[in-house]
């Protein structure tokens, strides 16, 4: 059985975006990226959510892309709550390590579309969206903008240096790449061991 860790997913692919004339990083499900450079962070979201968080004073910002593992557990310490808090913490920790100040952080949150992955009484997209809102509220991180739920996938360009966002709702999908990617990620979360290693020194 493998362990799913955000760090293991590898460094996101970076490329030069000719339209915006900046270096861009493409963030896939389970990945996150933080930078102090003037660049674009790009992602396509179905049921997954992205938190784009930055410190406006230092211009350091980053983006994650995740979903909660499907779990019927309703506890403050459920697998969903633990994985979600972890996905947010790795992003915030990296921001702080690079010099962002926690008290200055502001977030823009996107995704959680209801249509792509099926759901029970509460859709997967809705659970993901609600989790990010509640997490940020508990952490005291202001939500500067949000575009959540709805029936369409989204393409998001985030410019951490300025906080600017370009969002496009994908009303028609040319293929099923987004669903496939999210489905694979969802299966990885369901079938793999989410919890990290434990070592006792003495």
């Amino acid at each position: 059985m493998t362990t799913v860790r955000m760090q293991d997913v590898g460094a996101p692919v970076t490329y030069f975006d000719p339209r915006f004339k900046v270096q861009a990083a493409k963030i896939l499900p389970g990945e996150f990226y933080v930078t102090g450079r003037d660049m674009a962070l790009v992602t396509v979201l179905g049921s997954c959510v992205s938190a784009c968080i930055r410190d406006p004073e230092s211009g350091i910002g980053g983006m994650n892309h995740f979903m909660l593992p499907g779990s019927s557990e309703r506890s403050p310490a459920s697998a969903s709550a633990r994985y979600g808090a972890y996905a947010m913490e790795v992003l915030i920790n990296q921001l702080l390590k690079m010099g962002a100040k926690r008290s200055r952080l502001e977030a823009k949150i996107f995704g959680g579309c209801n249509a792509l992955l099926g759901g029970g009484t509460q859709s997967i997209g809705e659970s993901n969206a609600r989790f990010v809102q509640e997490f940020l509220s508990t952490e005291g991180i202001a939500i500067a903008a949000q575009d959540l739920l709805d029936a369409y996938a989204r393409k998001v360009y985030y410019f951490p240096r300025t906080g600017r966002v370009l969002l496009k709702k994908l009303r028609t999908l040319r293929n099923d790449t987004i669903q496939q990617r999210e489905l694979e990620y969802s299966e990885r979360l369901t079938n793999s061991r989410i919890d990290g290693e434990v070592e006792i020194f003495r």
């Binding site: 310490a77 697998a79 633990r82 994985y83 808090a85 972890y86 913490e89 989410i194 919890d195 990290g196 290693e197 434990v198 070592e199 006792i200 020194f201 003495r202």
Partner: peptide, 12 residues
């Protein structure tokens, strides 16, 4: 004394 990596198993 020990090192636990998040996300963690509450039972552990």
């Amino acid at each position: 004394t020990g090192w636990m990596v998040k996300p963690f198993d509450p039972n552990r």
